[in-house]
Design a protein around this nucleic acid. Structure first.
Lengths: 139, 139
DNA sequence: TCTTACGATGGACCAAGTCCAAGTCAATAC
DNA sequence: GTATTGACTTGGACTTGGTCCATCGTAAGA
């Protein structure tokens, strides 16, 4: 994740303890935290950090393209640090677990021209829904 | 839409003026209203209808499978009455217009077994994003 | 080390949605 | 047609997720 910190500094981002902690909390694979979860984990490392700062920092990371916003339900947005490899999401409808997945085809190619209504289509987001092994086992 | 009303009555739904109005307001193609928009339109026809009733009725229509919830951004949920024909959504990222579209392939088939992490996958939701003709023209 | 503009803070505020006790009424029974 | 009753509706309080803003603090350049 120091890659990320370096990239941010290179872009003229002013480095503060708060921003570092938020970036660190988001490090990893299959991480999809809500803003509130980020706040809890960040507070564990830096007790004085405020909610507004977490929201500000997440918003900046998103507009810098370093983190993706994921809206799987209409509850809290989730933040996905895996922004540099295109991927989709696989969601357990029972427990809410999210995994990053990589489909074989570009989903864009499945939308024929006559179904595009003249739109300039630039992206396709796919959410696969199902049950994770634990929930399927009736756990 | 009287189809819908008949189906609902057939399922033992108690018919009230409020429920009828909500169902009527949702009638049509490419309809994707928020709960609030439904409330506004329903109020125009039946001024005493309450917000709670609109939410209750929408929730019931969803659990009866007559209406779909669409969460394209993390703002208000939208309600899609076109629940009986499988389809996906095409969204203008500038003005928010939504169209129903019908891709050629089942998006589920693009997810190979080794990317399923043992999940029982039952559905795939696709949101295509782009610019509608009006917004692309710089309007 | 000084300066200063950028960032952090927390508390007020907002929007979407849920909950609940009390009142109302559609549908059935008579 | 009337009575009955349990399902439905109401409005207001409450919750959750998020934004805004005036003020204070501090990273980084001079």
């Amino acid at each position: 994740m120091s890659d990320l910190l370096d990239r941010l500094r290179g872009r003229g981002w002013r480095m503060t303890a708060q921003r570092r902690v938020v970036a660190e909390v988001l490090d990893g694979e299959h991480i999809h935290l809500t803003a509130d979860e980020v706040l809890v984990r960040a507070t564990a490392r830096l007790p004085e950090i405020s909610r507004a700062t977490v929201y500000n920092t997440l918003g900046e990371l998103v507009s810098l393209g370093e983190v993706l916003e994921v809206a799987t339900d209409a509850r809290a947005k989730r933040y996905d640090p895996n922004a540099h490899r295109p991927h989709q999401h696989l969601l357990c409808s029972h427990c809410g677990t999210i995994r990053d997945v990589h489909p074989t085809d570009d989903p864009l190619s499945a939308l024929p021209a006559h179904e595009r209504f003249g739109f300039t289509v630039v992206a396709a987001e796919v959410t696969y829904r199902g049950l994770c092994p634990e929930c399927a086992a009736g756990a």
